[in-house]
Design a protein around this nucleic acid. Structure first.
Lengths: 239, 239
DNA sequence: TCACATTTGTCCGTATGTATC
DNA sequence: AGATACATACGGACAAATGTG
């Protein structure tokens, strides 16, 4: 009767030991039993406790490392440490997906305009003094860097992340972070933006921040959208 | 003069062999030299070619596997195969980030409303016959499943992914896919949605699709937003 | 159905590199 | 600077899984 059987059961691919160990430790971290900064036992000790070989432990640690739950330090008093680097792994996954799907610059800009406009509206509702201070600091830092002839595009990218933070919505923070990683990758790939370009971007941010502080919503939205269209021109043209 | 030295160079943490091998193979895949369905040599053969031990190869394969570039099959004529599972890894990263940041249901719903409304607007511009067909099929499938007393919430989640696809913007496709994974996780965690609930959701989708086909933008937007607010009530309350 | 070959999964022992004290 | 502790890496071996003849 069913031309296509429904997917009821979970994949259940494989029960490899290192996967079980990885998920077990992952659960302990998510439940809060293991907290950031805590040190996991050494590989040999973990192997003893789980009653498996060291190689199995090593592969489990690779999974945890790439999933963004731990980092591993070599040398004396080193070892696996609980550390949240999920945003890094999420961003690089997003970047891979972007590359793999052959997404165009135009699509990226369009999505940025749509999403960040909503983020801006939320930010206008929930922004507080600490946010404004952080944004102002960001601009000062970017200005100082361009004045010294240094690259400021990292700081300029952080501006958008700070704006997302001001929306007080974690989902926006995550999404914007991922998108800005792609933007950063595109910009850094095609050489460095010139100091004039960076300076122009920073000035745009400054005007935008003024509008936000003054609560002029429509003006802020217009500035943001115009800004992103301008930034698109900095991207590599070919492909 | 600089209170805080600028981050100019990349981290350059470690050059572990398995990382180098992993990135090398990753580049070959992204450049198109290795294509989906191609089989990589066996672990022993890879170890011979790269002149490293098998353990190193295995850890490199773990990275590639978790990054979503390959899958590994055991047994005769098995081995590593080029396969794109990036959306899976991206979604699970997003889910981890969601859990780790203690994002609330309210935040998720708000972000969904904001983002999916934009997606809907784009979909209204670019939707074509194939999209409509796929969406109608999705509804038929969901109805059939609820009629047979089966869970239809996977199908109902696919509806939103298909809508994102109709926007013809890959960024939206990626973002919505990630968000819907979180939604699916929240729903499946708190037991299964009852058949009545699933049925209600499917009917909402049907009305929404009618509005889309008729190009009644405002009505479609209203339906979508009301729909998501209703769905929020199905989520687990506590925490 | 059954044996076989291939390949991953796992373990052990050992050596080397690296960071800390 | 030396000792220590740890991850990193190598090689060999066997078990388990899976497709093939």
């Amino acid at each position: 009767m069913n031309s296509e059987p429904a997917i009821v059961f979970s994949p259940l691919k494989t029960k490899r030991r290192f996967e079980e160990i990885s998920t077990k430790i992952k659960e302990l971290i998510l439940k809060g039993v293991l907290k950031t900064g805590d040190r996991l036992p050494s590989e040999t000790e973990l192997a003893r406790q789980f009653k498996v070989g060291r190689q199995t432990i090593r592969e489990a640690l690779r999974l945890l490392e790439l999933s963004g739950f731990i980092t591993v330090q070599r040398g004396g008093s080193g070892g696996p440490i609980i550390e949240n680097t999920i945003m890094n792994t999420l961003s690089s996954s997003f970047l891979d997906a972007f590359k793999y799907s052959n997404t165009t610059i135009a699509e990226l800009t369009l999505a940025r305009i749509q999403i960040e406009t909503q983020v801006l509206k939320e930010a206008l509702k929930h922004i507080d003094d600490a946010d404004v201070r952080a944004l102002r600091e960001n601009i000062v830092r970017a200005k100082k860097m361009t004045a010294e002839g240094m690259q400021a595009f990292r700081a300029n990218i952080d501006f958008h992340k700070l704006l997302a933070k001001a929306s007080k919505n974690h989902v926006f923070v995550i999404v914007v972070d991922a998108i800005m990683t792609v933007v950063a990758n595109l910009l850094s790939r095609r050489g460095e933006p010139s100091p004039e370009e960076s300076s122009y971007v920073t000035k745009s941010h400054e005007r935008l921040l003024d509008s936000i502080v003054a609560k002029r919503e429509q003006e802020a939205i217009s500035l943001l959208q115009a800004h992103m269209i301008e930034v698109e021109k900095l991207f590599p043209r070919k492909k």
